[in-house]
Each structure stands twice: as C-alpha cells, then as structure tokens.
Write a protein that binds this DNA or RNA. Structure first.
Lengths: 107, 107
DNA sequence: CTCATTCATAACCACCTGATTATCAATACG
DNA sequence: CGTATTGATAATCAGGTGGTTATGAATGAG
C-alpha cells in the first residue's frame, strides 16, 4: 500500500521549504543555524519548516550536542514519484535525456 | 530555461484539485458540470480549482456551446518531473519497476 | 419568446499558514 | 561557576486559501 503523496506535495509547495530541502540534498547534513544563514527567514521559521519536512519524512534529524543536524531523505519523495509515474507516463523521454546527462556528468 | 515547479506543486498540493486532475487524466475531457458531480464541493468551487489548474498549465479548456470541456495537460507536469529528476536520482530502480509494470499492462 | 442549464464571477467568511518576536532549556566554553 | 550559543516552542498577526451562496451572461430547448 503506497502512501498518499499529499504530505510531500504540501511540504514542497512552499518555496522556502523547497529551498531548504534542496540545500540539504546538495550540501548534505546541515545544522539549523547553518540552514538559517542564507534562508532569508528567521531561525524559528526555519525550525518550523524543518518540522513540516520531518513530518512528511523528507528529512531526518539527529542531535549532536547542542546542535541538530538535518539531512535529506530522498526516499521521502517516493510517493511523489509513484504518483507522477501514474499520471505522467509521457515523461519517459525526458527521463532518458536526464539519465544521459547524469551519465555524462559521472565521467 | 526550465520553468519553476512552484505552480505545479502549489496547484497539486490541494487534494480536491489533485482529484480533479486525476479524473481528467483518467477519464479524458469532462465538463464542469460533470466534474462537479462526485467532487464533493460546489460548482463554483470546482470552477475556481480548474482556474488554478489552468494557470499552472495542468489543464486546458475549450468552450462547446454552453459547456466548457476540460482536459488534462500531462506536459504541465514536466517542471515537477525535472525537479524530481534532480533531487531523486535514487528512484531509478523504482522507475524501472514501474516501467516493467507498464510494459506488462500493455500486453 | 420563454424557460432551463451551464459556468464564471463577486461577495463573504472561517480557517490555515508563514512570518515575526520573546523566551527557555540544553549544551559548550572561558 | 557564569556566559554564550543553539534550537524548539509559545504567542501573535497579516494575508492567503478554500469553501459557501447569490447572481448574471450565454447558450440550448420547447
């Protein structure tokens, strides 16, 4: 039984939240303080966004002393991927082109 | 220049809206009246949701006499697909499994 | 012509959301 | 110890969002 994509859609609908997730995906584990820098919003706002992402299982956190380090959980996107798979069979071509690109980047 | 996935994410974050898009994807062109039946909300609500989906270029409409027929534009999902492609390289496996499934269904 | 149907829009409203500042517990540091 | 840093939470607020009913224009049917 696949989970509904609702949580992921909702969590990623907000641009600030999407940016946080993108940063965590690109830069790996970051603290709340680190994420706040350059986020354009206050630290409490970042904490709340992270809580939403965590509920949607798109990030996970672990305490390190007085810091909390967050990292992306790309598996959290799976409900989205499944949903898109059903409603966007057309994107096979697009995926193939991306696959090519990634392969070329690997070299 | 890839368009931002923002419009699509926002449009699809609402479950009623997502349901409308799903019905249009599965059942093809439907009128507002037809979509209202079984939607659980009033006709004006449906009209407004359709306007949002239209702005996000996820559906298109054409007048037919006094009716307006809507149909899904799966290409409107491309920004979403691109975004997922960047942040979910992991889902290659999942995609392959889906691909298999679709192939089997074709037969 | 008259009446019914379709659908978009306006006006309104309750609730949600994203932001802020203030605060506090926990931890690190001197 | 005392002080600074980190991050979650509470309180608050403005604005957005999703719903409703009322309405009217356009079209179709008799």
């Amino acid at each position: 039984m696949e989970p509904s994509p609702d949580g992921a859609f909702r969590a990623l609908a907000d641009p600030t939240r999407r940016k946080l997730f993108e940063r965590l995906s690109r830069e790996g584990g970051l603290t709340v303080h680190g994420l706040t820098n350059g986020s354009g919003v206050s630290q409490p706002a970042v904490s709340k966004h992270l809580a939403v992402l965590k509920r949607a299982r798109l990030v996970e956190d672990r305490r390190e002393g007085r810091e909390t380090r967050y990292q992306a959980r790309p598996e959290g996107l799976s409900a989205l991927v499944d949903w898109l798979g059903i409603y966007a069979a057309f994107w096979r071509d697009r995926f193939d082109r991306l696959e090519d690109l990634l392969n070329r980047m690997d070299q």
